[in-house]
Simulated assay, not measured.
Amino acid sequence: MGHIDNRVELDKSIQREDPKYNVALSMMASKAAYENKAFIQDTVENHWKMEIVASGDYWNDYQQKATTEAFVLLDKSNKYDTYIVTFRGTELFDADQWSYDFDVSWLELPGLGKTHAGFMKALGLQKSNIGWPKEIKTNPNHAPEAYYFIRDLLKNHLNENDKAKFIVTGHSLGGALAILFPAILMLHEETLLLERLQVVYTFGQPRVGDGIFAEYMEKNLKHNGIKYYRMVYSYDIIPRFPPDIKDDLFKHFGTCLYFDRNYNGKKVQEEPNKNYFSLSAISPMTLNAICELMRSFAMVSRFGSEYQEGWVLRIFRFVGLVFPGAPNHLPQDYVNATRLGSIPSKVD
């Protein structure tokens, strides 16, 4: 991922008081999550001057190995401290992660509806204890499960600091895990954490559940005062999967922040062309891919050297001429959207 977008510095023009600060920081954290542990630590501590609270690989009970990755950083300020929980997206050459991306079988939980079983397994769904028990016995012979470890870590830190809050974020698969994390907090009635959860930002997030689950989340996010913003750039393929073609299949929920090719953002209920396979979208998607390829060579002159697009990304731009929307999923444009984009008001 670093060969596609090698930026590690935060945008210094976006100050902490800026409404774009949290979303811009969350996207940079989501991009950094693709790198190794040493890279993440160096970026957070030496470039961002923040603290790493936890970083590691987490256990998938169904795969019997640690295949889920996440880290937690601490952003201190004079007003209050903010913990940012960041889940990693799918590693390109990791077959284990791809296998649970494509595991679109249903997991049905009483009162919650149906959810994407593969994503739930990645988050820490128990095979031996069947489902989501509130507490599990720690197994010293393997890594901890992501949900249980991060939940307990946050509880310990937030109990020590009455003013601390936290944000959950992630790109792609990481975005799916980011919104499912509070869903299980709701299931377990984790009042303290739900009160301190400030906002959930996801970038290029796939659909994670059916219509009943979407209604459950809409109701409980509102009840707990939790903000949730799902960012979609242009014709990004992943937010349009799994497809929404019947009432009983996958549904998005929450506020969608949609950004066009010029990084103009607006709030919408659903991104345009909500399903990727649409005959009416072929021509505009192809035209968009051509314009993005041309834009790639003009970014530096328009916005400065930090927006330079290297040869790896330009190869993806060329791929987009054949498979429109594929390069739109890369973090590059999501970082650009949080920096250059017109973020709608009241997004923090």
Score class of each variant (00 low, 15 high):
Phe87Ile: 08
Leu107Gly: 07
Lys65Gln: 14
Phe93Asn: 12
Ile84Asn: 03
Asp94Ser: 01
Gln63Val: 05
Pro110Met: 04
Asp96Ile: 10
Ser77Val: 00
Lys79Asp: 12
Lys65Gly: 08
Phe87Lys: 00
Leu112Trp: 00
Asn60Tyr: 11
Phe71Asn: 14
Tyr62Lys: 08
Thr90Arg: 14
Asp101Glu: 08
Ala70Val: 01
Ala66Val: 10
Pro110Ile: 05
Asp96Trp: 04
Glu91Thr: 13
Asp103Trp: 14
Leu107Gln: 08
Thr115Val: 15
Tyr62Thr: 10
Leu73Glu: 11
Leu107Val: 05
Phe87Val: 02
Asp61Asn: 13
Leu107Tyr: 07
Leu109Thr: 08
Ala95Lys: 11
Gly56Phe: 09
Gln63Thr: 06
Asp94Leu: 00
Glu69Val: 05
Ala70Gln: 06
Ser77Glu: 00
Tyr58Asp: 14
Asp75Val: 12
Lys79Gly: 07
Glu91Cys: 02
Leu74Tyr: 02
Lys114Arg: 15
Pro110Glu: 15
Leu74Thr: 10
Leu107Thr: 03
Gln63Gly: 11
Leu92Thr: 12
Thr67Pro: 04
Glu69Tyr: 07
Asp75Lys: 04
Thr90Cys: 13
Phe102Gly: 12
Ser105Phe: 15
Gly111Gln: 07
Tyr83Ser: 03
Lys76Ala: 00
Ile84Tyr: 08
Ala54Asp: 14
Thr115Glu: 00
Leu74Phe: 05
Thr90His: 14
Ser99Met: 05
Thr86Ile: 07
Asp81His: 14
Tyr58Gln: 06
Asp57Glu: 12
Trp98Met: 12
Leu112Pro: 00
Val72Leu: 15
Ala95Thr: 11
Trp106Cys: 08
Asp101Pro: 00
Thr67Trp: 01
Thr82Glu: 04
Phe102Cys: 05
Thr68Arg: 10
Asp57Thr: 03
Ala95Trp: 11
Asn78Tyr: 01
